[in-house]
Nucleic acid binder design. Structure first.
Length: 338
DNA sequence: AATCCGGCCAACCGCATGTTA
DNA sequence: GTAACATGCGGTTGGCCGGAT
């Protein structure tokens, strides 16, 4: 016998844009229970949304740490390089830009970068872009074994690292040095932002109340949503400011630990714990325009020993930097080894 | 002022894979 | 082992917005 149906299939699920009220309900629920176990969310919250919709709303919009608004040049470079290397594997690409969602990156690619690149290639039309190998092409064309596939993925990780190094070394170094002095006050948590589509934007700043310059689009706040969204922001702010320990404790308690021990891939509470502790404890880290803590990222990128280090039995992260190194490696490799 | 049109993006859809009873 | 469902992911679409006509 299979698993019993999770939610009552008879209930008509609501579709379309989420309302502020729904957002608040979802955020406060996750505030209490942590993300994960999505099938129980509609039942427990009364939201007339399917679990999938709740998950998407959270991961693409509501979860803390998401940066919205314009992409920086560095983020663009990273996306372009990784897209060339990995193809349209947005989740994998997004793992290199922790503050961007795969959906965001995908949209940005489709609406901006594709055209930009096309224009660039048109300018130098004689030399058409050499399309690098893509996994899906390989998948379509080749029937290589799992071992070959894994080796290919390993190679891709190294290639991607190389590409990132190149991308970062082109433009980031200068900005990085500059931003070392400026960005220590950068906003660490940014939440849904209102756009022209009557959507929402609010920010939780780690340093002070969000300055208008914190985000390119933050000045365009309007509409009734914003006041509601501020409530969500308050929830998130309180959550991240006051509750990380609670969240951590919660994630260690039975409810979450049981799910974690059964399923390492779905340890969402753990993820929240890590993310919260990262964002709340790293206020002094240098965050690039794009929100990527480049000093740490670069440390990984430029440190060839890192990949072997993390697997070393004696390797125990002692510092935040080490922890991030560990996390980023996990994150960046996760999509390849799922 | 009205209409058209393209850009943009949040959300949905469908498929592949993972998980669970 | 199997069926049924959850989850993750990439592709696509619907609808809002602003600029052009």
């Amino acid at each position: 016998m299979g698993r019993p149906p999770c939610c009552s299939q008879t209930i008509v699920v609501k579709k379309g844009p989420w309302t502020p009220e729904e957002d608040i309900i979802l955020v406060s629920y996750i505030h209490q229970h942590g993300p994960g176990n999505w099938r129980s969310v509609p039942n427990n919250t009364g939201l007339l949304r399917c679990s999938k919709s709740c998950r998407l709303r959270w991961t693409n919009y509501l979860r803390p740490g998401i940066k919205r608004g314009d992409f920086s040049d560095d983020e663009e470079n990273v996306i372009v390089h990784l897209q060339a290397l990995l193809g349209n594997r947005w989740a994998a690409i997004a793992s290199y830009l922790p503050q961007r969602t795969d959906n965001d990156i995908k949209n940005y690619w489709n609406t901006h970068l594709k055209k930009k690149l096309k224009l660039g290639f048109d300018d130098q039309s004689s030399q058409s872009p050499p399309p690098p190998h893509h996994h899906h092409d390989l998948q379509k064309n080749g029937n290589f074994s799992k071992g070959q596939w894994e080796r290919r993925l390993q190679t891709d990780i190294q290639t991607a690292k190389q590409a990132l190094r190149e991308a970062l070394s082109l433009t980031t170094k200068q900005n990085f040095i500059q931003n070392n002095n400026n960005n220590s006050k950068l906003l660490f948590l940014s939440s849904p932002t209102p756009n022209k589509n009557n959507n929402k934007q609010f920010h939780v700043s780690s340093s002070s109340s969000s300055s208008p310059s914190s985000s390119s689009s933050s000045s365009s706040s309007s509409s009734t949503y914003v006041s509601n969204a501020e409530n969500i922001a308050e929830l998130l702010k309180n959550w991240t400011k006051n509750s990380p320990n609670k969240a951590m404790a919660r994630s260690r308690n039975s409810e979450s630990s049981s799910s974690c021990q059964n399923n390492n891939n779905n340890c969402s509470n753990l993820w929240v714990e890590e993310e919260i502790s990262y964002y709340s404890n790293n206020n002094n880290n240098n965050v690039q325009d794009g929100g990527v803590p480049f000093n740490l990222l670069e440390k990984w990128l430029f440190d060839e020993a890192a990949p072997t280090l993390q697997h070393h039995p004696q390797y125990h992260p002692q510092h935040q930097d080490d922890h991030f190194l560990h996390l980023s490696l996990q994150d960046s490799q996760a999509p390849f080894f799922n």
